[in-house]
């Protein structure tokens, strides 16, 4: 099983850099065969084209803006085919709906997709995670590892 773990978000917007930070720390250790960990930042087009390589599972790691989740709260969400609409593709940004929807449009198949997300404290301009979101990084790494357990086996 081939798994792509994609950190997404803008490191210049405070806690929006959660995804890149999680994959940076994950990438510091050796991954099982079949697992690719990458920081896509805000390069949505790059992610869309990489998904054409044919992965069996996609794990997006991202910040969860909005009031629904407390800062530092880590959740795992599953993306179903009905969750995606058309989504206008933006070559200069990272819109998960547009990126995931474009995979099919480009001739690929969207693998089972999960989002490991974290509630944010602030996404104002600035580099670095807030203390509560930074403390949630290990929990997010564990959640990601649980999603690619069994990778590398046929």
């Amino acid at each position: 099983m081939n798994v792509l773990v994609a950190g997404i978000g803008n490191i210049f917007l405070g806690d929006d850099g959660f995804g890149p930070e999680v994959v940076r720390q994950l990438g510091a250790s050796e991954q099982p065969p079949g697992v690719r960990v990458a920081d896509y930042g805000i390069r949505g087009m790059h992610l869309a084209y990489d998904l054409l390589d044919g992965y069996d599972r996609l794990v997006l790691v991202d910040a969860l803006p909005g009031p629904a989740h407390a800062p530092g709260e880590v959740v795992v969400l599953s993306v179903g085919p009905d969750d995606l609409g058309e989504g206008d593709f933006d070559a200069h940004g990272m819109n998960p709906v547009a990126v995931l929807a474009s995979v099919t449009r480009l001739g690929g198949t969207l693998p089972p997709t999960y989002v490991v997300g974290c509630g944010v404290a602030s996404t104002a301009q600035g580099i670095g995670l807030s203390p509560r979101v930074s403390a949630a990084v290990p929990a997010a790494m564990e959640a990601v590892r649980s999603l690619y357990a069994g990778a590398g086996r046929p």
Binding site: G66, D83, N95, P96
Partner: peptide, 19 residues
């Protein structure tokens, strides 16, 4: 607006906000 966002499933809320 918060009430509306809270009434939809988490994944759809995430995708909408990110859109």
């Amino acid at each position: 607006a918060n009430l509306l966002l809270a009434s939809i499933p988490d994944i759809q809320r995430y995708l909408r906000i990110r859109s």
